[in-house]
């Protein structure tokens, strides 16, 4: 069966064409393996540690929480007009994922899981504040990170530049 498929010139052409398109899109930042934007909602993991956020995007395996996740320190980028689900974790203290401009807020607590869903319709940058949780605050002017809503093309290009090293 496999042999018949491989020696079928039409099938072979289709495979090569598909690979070529994939290589092109990847090179131009328009396609990243694993980032299936057509799969809604779009999942991102936010992990609080040492008073800052780290964000993870699914890598080539299409799954979050694996070794090939793409990592972003402090910068959460999402494509506009996309349903986003943020899974919130903490590795040390209690944090609040807080974007006052968008009235977004949810907590992150070690060993517990919380999620936050949102969709941003226009391209813009937002600060991620640190809310007081019975104690620590960041000094004035400091934030825990940035939330950037951008076009899908820009998003894919940025994602392609990410490392999968934490």
């Amino acid at each position: 069966m496999m042999k018949r498929f491989l020696f079928n010139p039409i099938a072979l052409c289709l495979v090569l064409l598909g690979l070529g398109i994939g290589v092109y899109l990847s090179a131009t930042g328009q396609f990243v393996p694993g980032m299936a934007l057509e799969d809604r909602p779009f999942l991102v993991e936010a992990r609080g540690k040492e008073r800052a956020w780290r964000f993870s995007y699914a890598g080539s395996d299409g799954k979050l929480g694996t070794v090939d996740d793409w990592m972003s320190a402090g910068e959460l980028r999402v494509p506009v007009d996309t349903d986003v689900v943020l899974r919130l974790h903490s590795e040390d203290f209690i944090y609040v994922f807080s974007c006052p401009d968008l009235n977004l807020k949810e907590i992150a607590v070690p060993d517990l899981k919380f999620t936050l869903s949102f969709k941003i319709e226009q391209e813009a940058d937002f600060d991620l504040a640190m809310d007081p949780m019975c104690g620590f605050q960041l000094p004035p002017g400091k934030t825990m990170g940035t939330l950037i809503a951008c076009s899908e093309t820009s998003f894919n290009r940025w994602l392609g530049e990410l490392s999968n090293k934490p």
Binding site: V96, K105, E106, I107, F114, D131, P132, M133, C134, Q137
Partner: peptide, 23 residues
């Protein structure tokens, strides 16, 4: 009162609770 640090002018009012329902 720990959910939002306010100035003295708001001390005599109830807290504008900032924590989430999940908390």
């Amino acid at each position: 009162d720990m959910s939002e640090h306010v100035g003295p002018e708001l001390e005599k009012g109830k807290a504008a609770m900032k924590w989430t329902a999940s908390f």
